[in-house]
Nucleic acid binder design. Structure first.
Lengths: 127, 127
DNA sequence: TTTGGTACTGCAACATAGTTGCATTAGATT
DNA sequence: AATCTAATGCAACTATGTTGCAGTACCAAA
């Protein structure tokens, strides 16, 4: 697919992902990098990174886009069917390494599943 | 919670839901009713209907909000944990009546699950 | 190490979904 | 009919995400 050049912006984003085990919202990434690059660039790099299989994307319960490092994505298959967990208190999202079988439903041809589990994360449940 | 008055607008929306077994996107509802009411009103009535347990809401794979009639919601519990199915061709969404157990994940306190199954619906797979 | 093609970026303007404040209207209750 | 207040319309706003285009910088080839 697209060739990805190792620009400053690409490297900064890769850096941020390597330092974060949790998923990151685009809004957050745009904010984090606003002194280094334009938001359009953030959106475009993330798109390229996804099509390269470096990250995968999904929407949170508020409809905002998030990205997370891929562990088992390829450029052909971004469909880890792993679930995501969002804390309803702090909003943080993490990928769960549990593999969940895509539910079979009679008469439906299902290709993939987006599973968002909602609850309270460890940090927030302490308080 | 809120008192719901039987206004023209409320009745129109209830009507639309009674005529549709599928879920409806807010965008679509705003379009459908643009001669009868303001979009702000649509958003507000849907909110009230949800808190009354008449409908439930969720986001589609593009992050847009949808509503569907409740079958087993109460005003206390909108958490049918039924999955939704979105056709990636035509975009239509339907509620699946299958009850899916909320997956248990060790060390996570999970309250609810949003499950969106993506595939091709019957109409679209004919073509 | 310079050159040149083109991938990439920044900017500004736009598109769309959803929200808010406030003045006015219209259900319901008496 | 009078009245209380939920509900509505409107306009202006916020936020997320997108597009076109001109200019920049990566990288490979000479």
């Amino acid at each position: 697919m697209g060739i990805i050049r190792k620009t400053k912006s690409v490297e900064l984003l890769l850096d941020i992902f390597s330092q974060n085990s949790n998923a990151l919202s685009v809004v957050n990434l745009v904010k984090k990098t606003k002194n280094q690059m334009n938001k359009t660039t953030v959106y475009r790099i993330l798109e390229r990174m996804e099509s390269e299989g470096v990250v995968h994307s999904f929407n949170d319960i508020n409809g905002n886009k998030w990205y997370a490092k891929c562990h088992s994505c390829s450029s052909d298959n971004h469909l880890d069917s792993h679930p995501h967990f969002q804390c309803k208190d702090c909003g943080a999202i993490e990928c769960l390494s549990v593999e969940i079988a895509i539910p079979k439903v009679p008469n439906f041809q299902i290709d993939s599943a987006e599973i968002m589990l909602v609850g309270t994360c460890r940090n927030c449940s302490i308080v």
